[in-house]
Design a protein around this nucleic acid. Sequence first.
DNA 1: TATGAATGAGGGTTCATTCAT
DNA 2: CATGAATGAACCCTCATTCAT
Lengths: 194, 194, 194, 194
Amino acid sequence: MIHVNKRSGMESKKKILVAATKVFSDYGYKGASMRMIAGAAGISIGGLYLYFKNKEDLYGTLIRNRLDDLTEETRETLRDIQDPAEAMSTFISMRVKYARKHRELILVLGKEQAITFGLKAKRKFFEDQRRVIEEIVRKGITSGRFRSCDESEVAKIIICALRGFILSMIVEPDALFSHEECSNLILKGILAKK
Amino acid sequence: MIHVNKRSGMESKKKILVAATKVFSDYGYKGASMRMIAGAAGISIGGLYLYFKNKEDLYGTLIRNRLDDLTEETRETLRDIQDPAEAMSTFISMRVKYARKHRELILVLGKEQAITFGLKAKRKFFEDQRRVIEEIVRKGITSGRFRSCDESEVAKIIICALRGFILSMIVEPDALFSHEECSNLILKGILAKK
Amino acid sequence: MIHVNKRSGMESKKKILVAATKVFSDYGYKGASMRMIAGAAGISIGGLYLYFKNKEDLYGTLIRNRLDDLTEETRETLRDIQDPAEAMSTFISMRVKYARKHRELILVLGKEQAITFGLKAKRKFFEDQRRVIEEIVRKGITSGRFRSCDESEVAKIIICALRGFILSMIVEPDALFSHEECSNLILKGILAKK
Amino acid sequence: MIHVNKRSGMESKKKILVAATKVFSDYGYKGASMRMIAGAAGISIGGLYLYFKNKEDLYGTLIRNRLDDLTEETRETLRDIQDPAEAMSTFISMRVKYARKHRELILVLGKEQAITFGLKAKRKFFEDQRRVIEEIVRKGITSGRFRSCDESEVAKIIICALRGFILSMIVEPDALFSHEECSNLILKGILAKK
DNA sequence: TATGAATGAGGGTTCATTCAT
DNA sequence: CATGAATGAACCCTCATTCAT
């Protein structure tokens, strides 16, 4: 009269991750309980600990997976684009669409202690993403397509705008910009031509 | 041997709010415990409940205070500025400086349920801030200083960038842009002049 | 800007006792808080401790007062009655009416610890009341008005019936008997005459 | 080093109920703490919440169990008795013995708010018990065994006497009548035969 | 692999009591 | 006499984690 479900380890692990993504997203790290996650995954509480060392590990795995996924998508998207302006637009568009599609996971949970692992993974990802934009800007300046400017600062601004977009999905869904308008503004600015 | 400190009511309340701001900011709403806050405020646990009905009330008061403060500062800052471009720069500058100065409070706590009051107050504030930028842009377009564009979209983008700035203070302090560069980018864009 | 109300000590003490009677009756000993009582009495919390050592003392005083009151009323009521049957009816009637009139105080709070003082006072009162009935029955038997019986047992039964009446006022207000019917039953029994 | 005992669910639940009965009875609803109950049951605090939603649920379950038990015992006891006088004596005897045997549970907790469920169940039980006595009396009158009287009033008096008996077990253990004497008094009254 | 009863620290909150004013 | 801010133990309850099965 013991275990009922028999599945492969991978199957269970995936199931848990999917469920956990939803639950963490709905309730936050501290608000989500292992019981909730187990319930959503259709597994026992003990079962969770077969695949993940603890709550933090589960959360960290989740974050890393999503981050790797997005890193890969970024690489794919930009692979064959030469024009820096187009690359910029495409990057912004991709990130906005990705955020809208995976709205169930918000990559942000403040400094809540004990999630250091997740934070570390995030930090690396963030830096990588910034490098990507910096590179685009640098190529734009070199090729004369972009005006001379501090590529690092521009990258920071764009990252912040995208980060703000994600955050707005939670706190102010009415304030979500369209990626076309965003690209347009970044490229042309708002001042009238003389 | 009961109570040691005797303070005026106002003094205690202020002390609590300052401490709570720090603790909520460090640990998030759920991660912050009333014991932590009491400790940080140098007051007993029971003392907290002398000034605030409960945790949510304390948090809500905090949020409202900060929001009102920032609303007032926004009004003051923009009062006498006529040039839309200058207004834009000044707004961005003020918000960035404010965020840096009050880095201890992050106006964001996700969907954590039961903080509806705080959320509602935040929503109103967010909308107000957006209206302010929209108005600046509108005046810029009317006066011919800005090119024709969708003022609502521009406002959203700027809000998101600032929102992202605040969030970055927590998750990626290296990615904080300078307000001059930001204003510059918004105004002039990144494309080279033909 | 200190104290507002200035009254004689007796006045305040009385006020507190009246308020406490109501509050204890409504919420039980543990359910009643000193704050509630202070509020109901229109006095400060600290003021309570000017007149009573602590919660238990306040409760005990309350109980003792009511008990003394009822003891006196019992004596008064039975003073001039000679006929044992009439004495019995009158006693029952008086007790029922007293209970109905002072329904705000139920002289019963289980074994709730720390109310030992109250309990002790109650014990003495209970025994006294039983002695009164025993005496009536004894006189009835001696005079030939009552049949031979164990006066102690009869007293216990009557006390229990009255005690049950008070309790019923709380838990089953529909089950309150009329004192006439009760006296009648006690005196004549329920069996048909042969 | 986590949990020590491993028991079947039923075993634990029973253990808790037994312990809770004792503790509630000793200290009252508000006076009894979940910690006390857990200790008395030899289980952890958290364990309590595995079997009962909360304190009120635990209390309610307790009350319902005891009430159902006594209802069943009443039915069994009176099933085959035809003579109303005998039925009356037997009923009283059974109730007194039951009270003595299960002295650990006092079915009474005043108006303490938030125990509405328990109260409702109690109300129904009380009414049922009264109906049982009324029926006995009615049959007695019809058969000519009892004198004409108000069966409802008689039932109330008997219920109150028994209720008072239970209460006396707590507040005045010396005042417990014998069921024989009680039956005798109810049946024959106290007046001498002319 | 899988289960879920069991644990106990820790969460938010209340409240009898004290004491500087 | 009177006040009420302050205290801190104790309350009910939750939840990450473990382990016998």
